[in-house]
Amino acid sequence: MSYYQNKQEAFQHASNKVNDAERTADDILMAIHEADYGTELAHLKEEVNQAYQQVEKALTVASEHQETQLKSYKEQLDKIRNQLL
């Protein structure tokens, strides 16, 4: 696999994880008064942690443009943490 593909793949994985975390956060906000809120919150924490890890990995091989976007993803994850966690 070429270096470019590694960068692109790492970036795509990070992007997917951030999107997963955002969808889970949206689901949590809708279910905030339901009985399984605690379970969903634990799931969200795991999603956010996985997304952070993937973003950090992607940053190690990111192009300049990707680095800017990945830093934006980290800010999105921080907002999720501050909102719900």
Results as ranks from 00 to 15, higher is better:
59 L>V: 06
31 A>K: 05
68 T>W: 11
64 E>V: 12
62 A>R: 07
65 H>M: 10
76 Q>S: 14
54 Q>E: 15
30 M>T: 15
55 V>T: 12
56 E>N: 11
37 Y>D: 00
48 V>K: 01
72 S>M: 05
57 K>V: 11
58 A>N: 05
41 L>R: 01
7 K>Y: 12
70 L>V: 04
48 V>E: 01
23 R>A: 04
16 N>D: 08
77 L>N: 09
81 R>F: 07
38 G>N: 14
29 L>R: 04
33 H>M: 10
26 D>E: 08
61 V>E: 06
47 E>P: 01
17 K>W: 15
78 D>K: 03
14 A>V: 14
9 E>V: 09
18 V>M: 09
46 E>A: 04
4 Y>S: 08
31 A>I: 03
53 Q>C: 02
9 E>Q: 04
35 A>G: 01
77 L>W: 00
65 H>D: 10
12 Q>T: 11
15 S>V: 13
77 L>R: 02
25 A>G: 07
65 H>E: 11
83 Q>H: 08
3 Y>V: 15
41 L>C: 01
85 L>K: 07
77 L>K: 00
54 Q>I: 01
10 A>S: 15
35 A>P: 01
61 V>F: 11
2 S>Q: 08
45 K>S: 09
75 E>G: 09
72 S>F: 03
52 Y>C: 02
79 K>C: 01
26 D>F: 06
81 R>W: 06
58 A>W: 15
44 L>A: 14
83 Q>K: 05
55 V>L: 05
61 V>G: 01
34 E>V: 05
42 A>F: 11
78 D>I: 00
